[in-house]
Amino acid sequence: LGGFSAWALYGSNWLRVERVTVSGTDVLGADEVLDAARISEDVPMATVDTDAVEARLAAELPRIDSVDVDRVWPHRVEVTVTERRPAVLLRKGESFVEVDDGGVRFATVRTPPAKVPIVEMQVADSPSLDRFGRQRLRESAVRVAGALSESVRRDTRTILVRSYDSVTLELTGGRTVLWGSAERGAAKSKALAAVMKAERDARYFDVSVPSAPAASPS
Protein backbone atom coordinates (compact mmCIF):
# COMPACT_ATOMS: atom_id res chain seq x y z
CA LEU A 1 0.00 0.00 0.00
CA GLY A 2 2.84 2.37 0.86
CA GLY A 3 4.61 1.60 -2.38
CA PHE A 4 1.43 2.18 -4.37
CA SER A 5 0.85 5.52 -2.61
CA ALA A 6 4.40 6.65 -3.39
CA TRP A 7 4.01 5.59 -7.00
CA ALA A 8 0.66 7.41 -7.28
CA LEU A 9 2.18 10.62 -5.89
CA TYR A 10 5.49 10.61 -7.71
CA GLY A 11 5.54 8.08 -10.52
CA SER A 12 2.10 7.97 -12.07
CA ASN A 13 0.41 10.39 -14.48
CA TRP A 14 -2.59 10.81 -12.18
CA LEU A 15 -1.43 13.59 -9.85
CA ARG A 16 0.68 15.86 -12.00
CA VAL A 17 0.63 19.62 -12.54
CA GLU A 18 -1.52 20.45 -15.55
CA ARG A 19 -2.29 24.10 -14.81
CA VAL A 20 -0.95 27.01 -12.74
CA THR A 21 -3.37 29.89 -12.06
CA VAL A 22 -2.71 33.38 -10.70
CA SER A 23 -5.20 35.63 -8.90
CA GLY A 24 -5.10 38.92 -6.99
CA THR A 25 -2.84 40.85 -9.36
CA ASP A 26 -3.54 44.45 -10.31
CA VAL A 27 -0.40 46.18 -11.56
CA LEU A 28 1.55 42.95 -11.98
CA GLY A 29 0.69 40.73 -14.91
CA ALA A 30 -0.17 37.06 -14.46
CA ASP A 31 2.59 36.08 -16.91
CA GLU A 32 5.09 38.08 -14.84
CA VAL A 33 4.11 36.15 -11.72
CA LEU A 34 4.23 32.82 -13.54
CA ASP A 35 7.71 33.55 -14.89
CA ALA A 36 9.00 34.35 -11.38
CA ALA A 37 7.21 31.36 -9.81
CA ARG A 38 8.87 28.91 -12.22
CA ILE A 39 6.46 26.07 -11.53
CA SER A 40 6.92 23.40 -14.16
CA GLU A 41 3.93 21.63 -15.62
CA ASP A 42 3.71 17.86 -15.97
CA VAL A 43 5.67 17.26 -12.77
CA PRO A 44 4.23 15.44 -9.75
CA MET A 45 2.05 17.73 -7.62
CA ALA A 46 3.81 16.44 -4.51
CA THR A 47 7.16 17.79 -5.69
CA VAL A 48 5.99 21.41 -5.86
CA ASP A 49 7.74 23.18 -2.96
CA THR A 50 5.14 25.84 -2.14
CA ASP A 51 7.32 27.55 0.48
CA ALA A 52 10.19 27.89 -1.98
CA VAL A 53 7.89 29.32 -4.64
CA GLU A 54 6.49 31.88 -2.18
CA ALA A 55 10.01 32.92 -1.13
CA ARG A 56 11.11 33.23 -4.75
CA LEU A 57 8.14 35.41 -5.68
CA ALA A 58 8.67 37.71 -2.69
CA ALA A 59 12.35 38.10 -3.54
CA GLU A 60 11.96 38.68 -7.28
CA LEU A 61 8.81 40.83 -7.29
CA PRO A 62 9.05 43.53 -4.56
CA ARG A 63 5.56 44.75 -5.46
CA ILE A 64 4.19 41.59 -3.82
CA ASP A 65 3.20 42.17 -0.20
CA SER A 66 2.13 38.59 0.48
CA VAL A 67 1.59 35.45 -1.57
CA ASP A 68 0.03 32.04 -1.01
CA VAL A 69 0.85 29.04 -3.19
CA ASP A 70 -1.52 26.09 -2.79
CA ARG A 71 -1.84 22.69 -4.40
CA VAL A 72 -5.41 22.16 -5.63
CA TRP A 73 -5.56 18.42 -6.15
CA PRO A 74 -5.42 16.62 -8.45
CA HIS A 75 -3.89 18.83 -11.17
CA ARG A 76 -3.73 22.56 -10.34
CA VAL A 77 -1.43 24.93 -8.43
CA GLU A 78 -2.99 28.23 -7.37
CA VAL A 79 -0.92 31.38 -6.74
CA THR A 80 -2.78 34.11 -4.82
CA VAL A 81 -1.04 37.48 -4.69
CA THR A 82 -1.61 40.57 -2.58
CA GLU A 83 0.18 43.59 -4.02
CA ARG A 84 1.64 46.47 -2.05
CA ARG A 85 -0.27 49.73 -2.33
CA PRO A 86 1.59 53.04 -2.50
CA ALA A 87 0.97 55.32 0.47
CA VAL A 88 3.22 58.09 -0.87
CA LEU A 89 5.44 58.85 -3.83
CA LEU A 90 9.02 60.12 -3.70
CA ARG A 91 10.49 62.05 -6.60
CA LYS A 92 13.53 60.48 -8.27
CA GLY A 93 14.56 62.59 -11.23
CA GLU A 94 11.70 62.37 -13.68
CA SER A 95 10.36 59.21 -12.06
CA PHE A 96 8.53 58.40 -8.83
CA VAL A 97 9.33 55.81 -6.16
CA GLU A 98 6.30 54.07 -4.68
CA VAL A 99 6.42 53.60 -0.90
CA ASP A 100 3.88 51.56 1.08
CA ASP A 101 2.45 52.16 4.57
CA GLY A 102 5.36 50.27 6.09
CA GLY A 103 7.94 52.52 4.46
CA VAL A 104 8.99 49.86 1.93
CA ARG A 105 10.14 51.24 -1.43
CA PHE A 106 8.90 48.67 -3.89
CA ALA A 107 8.76 50.18 -7.38
CA THR A 108 9.87 53.09 -9.56
CA VAL A 109 7.38 54.36 -12.13
CA ARG A 110 7.45 57.05 -14.78
CA THR A 111 3.78 57.99 -14.42
CA PRO A 112 2.54 58.61 -10.86
CA PRO A 113 -0.56 56.63 -9.89
CA ALA A 114 -3.65 58.74 -9.33
CA LYS A 115 -4.67 59.93 -5.88
CA VAL A 116 -1.36 59.10 -4.18
CA PRO A 117 0.34 62.07 -2.43
CA ILE A 118 3.82 63.16 -3.46
CA VAL A 119 6.30 63.92 -0.67
CA GLU A 120 8.12 67.23 -1.03
CA MET A 121 11.11 67.87 1.23
CA GLN A 122 12.01 71.48 2.10
CA VAL A 123 14.40 70.78 4.96
CA ALA A 124 17.71 72.15 3.68
CA ASP A 125 17.74 74.95 6.27
CA SER A 126 15.95 73.05 9.02
CA PRO A 127 17.75 72.00 12.24
CA SER A 128 15.66 68.82 12.00
CA LEU A 129 17.83 67.65 9.12
CA ASP A 130 20.92 67.45 11.33
CA ARG A 131 19.02 65.99 14.26
CA PHE A 132 16.85 63.38 12.54
CA GLY A 133 18.32 62.94 9.06
CA ARG A 134 16.54 63.01 5.72
CA GLN A 135 15.44 59.36 5.88
CA ARG A 136 13.63 59.75 9.19
CA LEU A 137 11.95 62.93 7.96
CA ARG A 138 10.72 61.02 4.89
CA GLU A 139 9.45 58.28 7.18
CA SER A 140 7.44 60.87 9.10
CA ALA A 141 5.62 61.73 5.85
CA VAL A 142 4.79 58.04 5.38
CA ARG A 143 3.43 57.91 8.94
CA VAL A 144 1.25 60.95 8.27
CA ALA A 145 -0.12 59.37 5.08
CA GLY A 146 -0.90 56.19 6.98
CA ALA A 147 -2.92 58.14 9.55
CA LEU A 148 -5.14 59.89 7.02
CA SER A 149 -8.68 58.77 6.38
CA GLU A 150 -9.23 57.24 2.95
CA SER A 151 -11.17 60.27 1.71
CA VAL A 152 -8.53 62.79 2.86
CA ARG A 153 -5.71 60.67 1.44
CA ARG A 154 -7.41 60.58 -1.96
CA ASP A 155 -7.67 64.40 -1.90
CA THR A 156 -4.08 64.95 -0.75
CA ARG A 157 -1.80 66.03 -3.57
CA THR A 158 1.36 66.86 -1.64
CA ILE A 159 2.81 66.12 1.79
CA LEU A 160 5.22 68.96 2.44
CA VAL A 161 7.91 68.33 5.08
CA ARG A 162 9.69 71.44 6.36
CA SER A 163 10.88 69.94 9.66
CA TYR A 164 10.06 67.09 12.03
CA ASP A 165 7.36 69.25 13.65
CA SER A 166 6.10 70.91 10.46
CA VAL A 167 4.30 68.66 8.01
CA THR A 168 1.67 70.26 5.78
CA LEU A 169 -0.89 68.67 3.49
CA GLU A 170 -1.87 70.32 0.23
CA LEU A 171 -5.31 69.11 -0.80
CA THR A 172 -7.49 69.52 -3.86
CA GLY A 173 -9.55 72.69 -4.06
CA GLY A 174 -6.72 74.86 -2.76
CA ARG A 175 -7.09 73.52 0.77
CA THR A 176 -4.17 73.28 3.20
CA VAL A 177 -3.81 71.31 6.43
CA LEU A 178 -1.14 72.09 9.02
CA TRP A 179 -0.52 68.64 10.50
CA GLY A 180 2.51 69.37 12.67
CA SER A 181 4.61 66.32 13.55
CA ALA A 182 3.72 62.73 12.71
CA GLU A 183 2.85 62.08 16.36
CA ARG A 184 -0.76 61.45 17.46
CA GLY A 185 -1.84 60.67 13.93
CA ALA A 186 -5.14 58.99 14.84
CA ALA A 187 -6.23 61.94 17.00
CA LYS A 188 -5.30 64.43 14.27
CA SER A 189 -7.17 62.48 11.63
CA LYS A 190 -10.28 62.43 13.80
CA ALA A 191 -9.96 66.15 14.57
CA LEU A 192 -9.52 66.94 10.86
CA ALA A 193 -12.67 65.03 9.94
CA ALA A 194 -14.63 66.91 12.59
CA VAL A 195 -13.40 70.38 11.67
CA MET A 196 -13.87 69.75 7.94
CA LYS A 197 -17.46 68.72 8.59
CA ALA A 198 -18.11 71.79 10.78
CA GLU A 199 -16.33 74.28 8.47
CA ARG A 200 -17.23 73.14 4.97
CA ASP A 201 -16.19 76.40 3.29
CA ALA A 202 -12.80 76.62 5.03
CA ARG A 203 -9.58 76.41 3.03
CA TYR A 204 -7.05 76.23 5.87
CA PHE A 205 -7.10 73.73 8.71
CA ASP A 206 -4.77 73.36 11.68
CA VAL A 207 -4.75 70.05 13.57
CA SER A 208 -1.21 70.29 14.90
CA VAL A 209 -2.84 70.35 18.35
CA PRO A 210 -5.68 67.86 17.83
CA SER A 211 -7.51 68.85 21.01
CA ALA A 212 -7.91 72.37 19.60
CA PRO A 213 -8.34 72.17 15.81
CA ALA A 214 -8.87 75.38 13.88
CA ALA A 215 -10.11 76.42 10.45
CA SER A 216 -10.19 79.61 8.44
CA PRO A 217 -11.24 80.77 4.95
CA SER A 218 -7.61 81.16 3.82
Rank of each mutant, 00 (worst) to 15 (best):
L1D: 11
G3S: 08
F4D: 11
A6R: 11
Y10M: 11
Y10L: 15
S12K: 14
V22T: 03
V22G: 00
A30V: 06
E32M: 05
D35E: 12
A36Q: 02
A36I: 02
I39F: 06
I39V: 14
E41F: 11
E41V: 10
E41I: 10
V43D: 09
P44H: 08
A46D: 09
T50W: 07
D51Q: 15
V53G: 08
A55I: 13
R56D: 12
R56C: 11
L57S: 02
A59K: 15
P62M: 06
R63Q: 05
S66P: 04
V72A: 15
H75G: 10
R76P: 09
T80R: 10
T82P: 04
T82H: 10
P86T: 03
R91D: 15
G93I: 02
F96Q: 01
G102M: 02
R105E: 14
F106N: 00
V109I: 06
T111L: 07
T111P: 13
A114S: 15
A114F: 13
M121W: 04
V123R: 04
V123N: 04
D125W: 05
S126L: 10
S126F: 09
P127K: 06
D130F: 07
G133S: 10
L137N: 03
E139G: 04
A141Q: 02
V142E: 00
V142G: 03
R143P: 09
V144S: 01
G146L: 05
L148I: 08
E150G: 09
S151K: 13
R153T: 07
R154E: 06
T156E: 03
R157F: 07
L160S: 11
V161W: 00
V161L: 08
S163C: 13
V167K: 03
T168K: 06
L169I: 00
L169H: 00
E170S: 10
E170V: 09
G173I: 01
G174T: 06
W179Y: 06
S181I: 00
A182R: 01
K190T: 14
A194D: 13
V195R: 05
A198W: 07
A198Q: 14
E199L: 10
D201T: 15
D201W: 15
F205K: 00
D206T: 09
V209P: 05
A214H: 07
S216E: 15
